Simulated assay, not measured.
Amino acid sequence: MTELERDIIREILNIGLARAADSFAVVAQEKVLLEVPSLDLLESEDILLQVKEYSANHAVIQSDIRGDFTGTTLMFFSGQHVQRLSRVCLRMQVSDSVQVNELQESLLLEISNIITGALVTQLANILKARIYGAPPCTFNGDTTALMSHLVPSESLQPLIFSIITHFSDHGNSVELPLMLFFNRATFEKILNIIRGYDFLGKQLAGA
């Protein structure tokens, strides 16, 4: 992957994430700031370490991407997010905790569905791909199953789009980490699309 290809992929993600951030802002009733996504190729051990670190103090929602591409998103809701969203969307006064009840879990699932849906729709439009988001579910912390889903062969490496969005609440920035995983086969498809078309000149200009 050349630096130009890396920049194009990052810009494609920026476009998709901007729509996702707008969708989240409507739900959260607050301004959402988007950090430029980083793009890294990591070993499986490094991936698992990152996921475990976030999972230790966040409520985690998983959504799979299916169709022409195979991927997964993990959204990490902090206790501050759970507290804020419960107050805004459910009219519930709760403590700052990632221990959620059934109603709060349903809310987080719906928010993840909205954000992932907005992202996947934009990616499908830009890349001219038939992809869709599967119904989200609560991530149970089984990183082995996650890796098996993404990397059926130990000889392959997945591509991680590491994305952080910031939810601003009265001037206090609270991170809402969103990890986007694509396997190598999907990454190769994306690169082939970019290499076979004047992406920067035509597709992104139209978006």
Rank of each mutant, 00 (worst) to 15 (best):
T138E: 02
A207F: 13
D169S: 07
E43D: 14
L108E: 01
I65G: 08
E5N: 14
H58F: 06
M1K: 13
L108I: 06
Q157L: 15
L17D: 05
E30H: 12
V82Y: 06
L39M: 14
F69Y: 13
L13I: 04
F69N: 01
I9Q: 04
K202L: 09
L108Q: 06
K202E: 10
Q122Y: 02
L48I: 14
A59N: 08
I194F: 04
L178A: 03
Y197N: 15
L180E: 05
L178P: 00
Q80S: 11
V51M: 04
T186W: 01
H81W: 10
A20G: 15
L34A: 06
T121H: 11
L4R: 12
S55H: 14
F167V: 05
L123W: 13
S153L: 12
T2P: 13
N125W: 02
E175N: 11
V174K: 08
L123K: 06
E5Q: 14
H81E: 09
D198M: 08
L90F: 11
A25M: 11
L191W: 00
F187Q: 04
S97I: 06
L13N: 14
D7T: 12
E45P: 00
L109K: 08
F139C: 01
M1Y: 14
A145V: 07
R6P: 02
V51D: 00
R19W: 04
N183L: 02
Q62V: 09
A207P: 02
A25F: 11
L146R: 05
Y132C: 05
S168T: 07
R130A: 12
L74T: 08
R184N: 07
L34P: 00
I12Q: 03
R6W: 09
T186C: 01
S112E: 09
T143C: 10
L41K: 14
T2M: 10
H58I: 02
A118T: 12
E105W: 03
P136G: 03
N101E: 06
N14A: 07
H149N: 14
L48V: 15
I47D: 12
N140I: 05
R19T: 12
